[in-house]
Simulated scan of single mutants.
Amino acid sequence: MSGALAKLLCLGLLVLAPACQQLPAPAVTPPPAAVTATPASGYAAVAPVVSPESRYVFGWGEIPAAVAKPRGGSTQGTAVTLAPAQPLPLASIAAAGDAFNRDRAAILALAGDYRTSFHFMESLGLTTDYHPARSYHSWATEHIRVITDTGRFISLQHTLVMFFSNPNGSASAPMLTKHWRQDWTYEDPDLHTFRGDATWARRRPSPAEASGAWSQAVFQVDDSPRYEALGRWEHAGNLSVWTSERAWRPLPRREHSVRKDYDVMEGAHRIVLTPTGWLHEQNNWKRVAGESVSTPRYVAAEIGLDRYERITAPSLAAADEYWKKTGAYWALVRRVWTEEFARRERFTLQPKFQDKALFEHHFAYAEKLAEGQPFDAADAERHTRATLTGFLGGPPAR
């Protein structure tokens, strides 16, 4: 495994990685316009310490200092320059002639270069032995590009392009890797939803459910499915917000290796456009068992705030070169997955095939292309089909 990939595993941004220590945010250069300055750390100041043993945490009050300190990564990022704030509604939304095109403009506005911060905190417990868990905090610099736009379908690909501070104060070369993907489909008649136990199954919403709605399907770094939910955009004055239905997700990467007391993340989420980018807000329930259990049991609730703030520096253009070299391969992976979705009413993903996780198979192949190996479409297709068939336990039953 490369040093860059190992670092991203430690950050908890890629796969089911162990938690690391708290991750300091990159320093911030505010935009030139009259925008409120961000603290040097990039985040709100911590409340004054009442005693060496406790800290104030919003919503909890005084809790032990060891619990109040968030978990996350341990790497220092280089400075970023925030883009000037834009008035809302965005010009592209204001100019749209109808609700459908306002929705499209809002989805397309999610693309760009961002400093991203991830914040998660449990807000309550539902068991007699519950104690507040440590919150989670991490960061990234991330490029989001439109890879497909057919009108009623828009696909947005996230790519991490991260710069780290070396011990001598210099900046590292960009560390780049493919990240998650979000697909938006208007009036989607065919969803693939998580059912627990590494299993996904087809869900066909009624015409009334799908009318005017957009599904958001989220995929892992290896293009395997994560979750999918229907939701609706609302545009009112300077507010543009998409609100999802309540849906299931696998344990998030930040939780998988440190929590064994629940199996399913069940919740709703919102995406809100802001003058400086957008916010992904989550309200999650941590559920013990999946659909095989008639009476659910929940251990806790959690709130999450993922902030995407537009930046003008550093340049994240390294993503362009990566996609020039690897884009054809990842397009093939997406096509094969689309075919598998069409063929399978239900499927379970195996954790390993040939002693490797799915992302390891795909990342190793893509890395050869990124290093300059020519793309061989026939070889790539053989590799992709054999790999996915192995993880899906063979072809579907007839």
Rank of each mutant, 00 (worst) to 15 (best):
K178V: 12
S294L: 14
W285A: 11
R204L: 12
L108E: 06
P39A: 07
I147H: 01
F118M: 09
S92D: 13
G59C: 05
A47I: 05
A210V: 04
W214Y: 03
L305M: 14
G327M: 10
D149Q: 03
Q22T: 14
K178Y: 10
D197V: 08
E187F: 01
H143G: 08
T159Y: 01
E187D: 08
Q86M: 13
H383F: 15
G61F: 05
L14D: 08
A198M: 11
S172W: 01
K286Y: 09
A213D: 02
G59D: 06
L369T: 04
A318C: 05
F120R: 05
P250H: 03
P70H: 07
T276P: 04
Y186C: 04
R152S: 13
Q182N: 12
E345H: 05
D355W: 04
V67M: 11
A44F: 14
A94D: 08
V35S: 13
L251H: 01
L9A: 12
A331F: 04
L191P: 00
A65Q: 10
H280S: 12
W180V: 06
P174M: 07
A95D: 13
V80E: 04
Q220A: 11
I63Y: 03
M121T: 14
T199C: 04
S155F: 04
G61R: 05
Q76V: 12
F347K: 00
